[in-house]
C-alpha cells in the first residue's frame, strides 16, 4: 500500500497579482502555488518573467496587490512582515550589495542584532556559523579585500545565522565562477538531504535545476510549467520559450532524429545521454569504454 505523503505546506500563494506601479501591466499575474516544508524548488524563466518579483513577495519586500500569501500558516501583511522575515531568508545575486558590515564579523552579526538577540547569544551563533562556512580566518576583513565567492559565502552564512525556515536564493550563483558555484550546489544538496530547510531558488543553470525536487517555469507573470525537473528539461519547446539552455545531448538526439537516425525513446537529459551513448557504441570500432566520465 502506497502511503500518500502528508501535506505540510510552508508557503501558500493564491491568485497573487503584483504590479510595479499602478497602470502598468502586472509583473505577477495570478499565481497560485504551494510549497511543502523541506522541498527544494527551482524557479526559472526569461528576463521579465517575474521570478525576482515572486520571491520578493515571499518575504514582503514587495506587497501583493491582490491575492493571499501564507507563510508557515501566517498571512503575510504589513503588520506581520517583521515576524515573517525571521522565517524567510533571502540571498541576493550581487555579493557586494548585501554586505552591510564593515567586516565579516559585523555582517554576520547584523541580522542577529536586528533580531534583538543578546550579545552573548550573537557571539555563540556567530562563531558557530563562521566555523560551518570556513569564515573564521576572515572575520576581521573588510569586504573590499574579499573575492566574490567569499562574499557570497558570508551572505549565505549571515542569512542562515538568523535560522530561517525558508531559504530563498535569487540567482545567488550568477556572479560566481565555476568552482564557487559547484561548492554552493554541493552545500545545497547536503542541506536539502537533512530536510531542515525549504529551498526556493531562482537560477539559469541546468545542473541546479536538475538537483531540485521541483521546477517552476514562469512566463510573463504566470506559471507555465510546474513539475519534476527531469521531465520538464526534456520539453524543448518549454525551454526555448523560457530562454533556458536545452541540454546538449537532447539537441544532438533531436538532430539525429531529423536525419533519420533513431536513438530510442528519451524524455529526460539522462535518457538522451544514455540513448546517444548506446547508439554510438553500436557503430564504434572500439569496445564501449564506460569509464568515459559522463556526468552530465
Amino acid at each position: 500500500m502506497v502511503q500518500k505523503k502528508k501535506s505540510n505546506p510552508v508557503i501558500r500563494m493564491k491568485d497573487v497579482v503584483c504590479r510595479r506601479a499602478t497602470g502598468e501591466a502586472p509583473v505577477i499575474n495570478g499565481v497560485t502555488l504551494t510549497v511543502e516544508r523541506g522541498e527544494w524548488v527551482c524557479v526559472a524563466g526569461g528576463n521579465g518573467s517575474g521570478k525576482s518579483t515572486l520571491v520578493r513577495l515571499l518575504n514582503g519586500l514587495l506587497l501583493a496587490e491582490s491575492g493571499t500569501i501564507e507563510i508557515d500558516g501566517r498571512w503575510l501583511r504589513a503588520d506581520t512582515l517583521w515576524d515573517i522575515r525571521q522565517k524567510v531568508g533571502i540571498v541576493f545575486p550581487q555579493p557586494d550589495d548585501q554586505f552591510v558590515g564593515l567586516t565579516v564579523e559585523d555582517d554576520l552579526a547584523f541580522g542577529l542584532e536586528n533580531q534583538g538577540l543578546s550579545p552573548e547569544a550573537i557571539d555563540k551563533r556567530l562563531w558557530q556559523i563562521a566555523a560551518q562556512f570556513n569564515l573564521t580566518e576572515l572575520l576581521d576583513r573588510h569586504p573590499g579585500t574579499l573575492s566574490g565567492g567569499q562574499k557570497q559565502r558570508v551572505a549565505l552564512a549571515a542569512v542562515l545565522a538568523m535560522q530561517p525556515e525558508i531559504l530563498i536564493l535569487d540567482e545567488a550563483s550568477a556572479m560566481l565562477d565555476g568552482s564557487s558555484r559547484a561548492d554552493l550546489l554541493s552545500w545545497l544538496k547536503r542541506t536539502h538531504r537533512s530536510g531542515l530547510l525549504t529551498i526556493v531558488m531562482i537560477t539559469h543553470e541546468i545542473e541546479e535545476m536538475a538537483a531540485a525536487d521541483r521546477l517552476i517555469v514562469l512566463r510573463e507573470g504566470c506559471v507555465v510549467a510546474d513539475g519534476k525537473p527531469g521531465e520538464l528539461l526534456g520539453d524543448e519547446g518549454l525551454l526555448q520559450d523560457s530562454r533556458l539552455e536545452i541540454p546538449y545531448a537532447l539537441q544532438v538526439c533531436r538532430e539525429l532524429r531529423q536525419l533519420g537516425v533513431e536513438t530510442g525513446e528519451w524524455t529526460t537529459e539522462r535518457e538522451a545521454v544514455d540513448a546517444l551513448w548506446a547508439l554510438v557504441s553500436k557503430i564504434s570500432a572500439s569496445p564501449i569504454r564506460m569509464e568515459q566520465a559522463l556526468s552530465v
Binding site: 541540454p247 546538449y248 545531448a249 545521454v273 551513448w277 569504454r289 568515459q292 566520465a293 559522463l294 552530465v296
Partner: peptide, 8 residues
C-alpha cells in the same frame, strides 16, 4: 559534461 560527451 556536455563537452566530455562530445569528446567521448
Amino acid at each position: 559534461g556536455a563537452i566530455r560527451l562530445a569528446l567521448g
